[in-house]
Amino acid sequence: MSIDLGQFRLPAVPSGEPPAPKASNAPATGPMVVIGLLSAALFGLFYMAALNNPSIVAPPKPVPLVAKVAPVTTAKPAAPPLTSSQVPAATVPKPERPRLVTRGELREIQTLLKDAGYDPGPADGLMGRKTHGAIAAFAEAHGIELGPEPDLALLEAVRAAAR
């Protein structure tokens, strides 16, 4: 779609003198006025958008600087070092969960679940409602603890059940 800006003309302003003849190479004033009006309107829109942006209107609040003072503590007698049998349970790190399965591995889980009699839907490697339900039913039947997403522990359990 194209718009010919040469079609816009300003009405003649009556004055006491007749209009001067136009030179053949003088630009038409109509398109320049329309372009000027459009530019002003566009600038206004951008200006209003900038005013509605809270990061531009209100500068971030400065963070007060507070001098850090070391707390006053009373000296406690030093405890004897702990042996390995006396280590508190809270300091023993929990084992990490295995990594999450890839799309191909999830496709394998879906196929093995379908073979085991669960309905995970199509074996597309995507985690949908049916796949989630089939995994939950399998985990409940086999006493497996699940994480929020399928991981390698689930894959190994499904492989072991398929044997």
Results as ranks from 00 to 15, higher is better:
Ala157Pro: 10
Gly121Asp: 00
Thr73Phe: 12
Thr83Ile: 00
Ala162Cys: 01
Lys76Met: 01
Val33Phe: 09
Glu17Cys: 05
Thr102Lys: 07
Ala153Tyr: 05
Ile135Glu: 12
Leu126Thr: 12
Leu126Met: 06
Met127Gly: 06
Val92Phe: 06
Gly125Glu: 00
Ala123Gln: 02
Ala90Lys: 02
Lys22His: 12
Lys130Trp: 04
Leu112Pro: 05
Gly125Arg: 01
Arg97Gly: 09
Pro18Met: 04
Tyr47Gly: 12
Pro95Phe: 05
Arg129Val: 11
Ala58Pro: 00
Val63Gly: 02
Ala70Gln: 12
Val87His: 03
Glu149Gly: 01
Thr131Trp: 08
Leu155His: 04
Ala116Asp: 11
Arg103Asp: 10
Val66Ala: 05
Glu17Trp: 08
Pro81Arg: 04
Ala20Val: 15
Ala70Arg: 12
Gly104Gln: 10
Lys22Asn: 11
Ala141Gly: 13
Leu100Pro: 08
Ser39Val: 11
Ala58Gln: 14
Pro21Leu: 15
Gln110His: 07
Leu100Asp: 11
Leu37Ala: 14
Ser85Tyr: 01
Thr74Glu: 12
Val158Gln: 03
Ala136Cys: 00
Pro80Lys: 14
Ala26Lys: 05
Pro11Gly: 08
Lys61Glu: 13
Leu37Asp: 08
Ile109Gly: 06
Ala41Leu: 15
Arg159Trp: 04
Leu106Cys: 02
Val13Lys: 08
Lys114Ser: 13
Gly16Ala: 14
Pro19Asp: 11
Glu105Asp: 07
Pro27Asn: 08
Pro31Gly: 04
Leu100Thr: 14
Thr91Lys: 02
Pro11Lys: 04
Glu140Ser: 14
Val92Pro: 00
Ser55Met: 08
Ala153Phe: 04
Phe43Trp: 11
Ala26His: 12
Pro120Glu: 02
Thr29Asn: 14
Ala23Arg: 15
Val66His: 07
Ala79Arg: 13
Ser24Thr: 03
Leu154Phe: 04
Gly147Ala: 14
Val33Cys: 00
Leu51Val: 06
Leu65Asp: 11
Pro77Gly: 03
Ala50Met: 14
Gln86Phe: 00
Ala134Ser: 03
Leu65Phe: 12
Ala67Ser: 03
Val34Pro: 05
Arg159Asp: 04
Gln86Pro: 00
Leu42Ala: 15
Asn52Cys: 08
Leu5His: 12
Asp115Gly: 06
Ala161Gly: 06
Ser84Trp: 03
Pro11Val: 07
Pro54Tyr: 07
Asp124His: 01
Ala162Thr: 13
Val34Trp: 12
Leu10Glu: 12
Thr74Ser: 08
Ser39Met: 11
Leu5Tyr: 13
Arg9Cys: 06
Gln7Asn: 01
Ala161Arg: 05
Pro150Asp: 06
Pro60Leu: 08
Pro21Asn: 14
Lys94Val: 15
Glu149Thr: 10
Ser84Glu: 07
Asn25Glu: 13
Arg103Ile: 01
Ala89Ile: 02
Leu65Trp: 07
Gly36Leu: 10
Arg129Ser: 07
Gly128Arg: 03
Ala153Leu: 05
Glu17Tyr: 03
Leu82Ile: 03
Pro11Met: 03
Leu112Trp: 05
Ala162Gln: 11
Val69Arg: 06
Arg107Ala: 15
Pro19Gln: 09
Val92Cys: 00
Ala123Ile: 00
Ser2Ala: 14
Gly16Cys: 09
Leu106Pro: 01
Val13Asp: 10
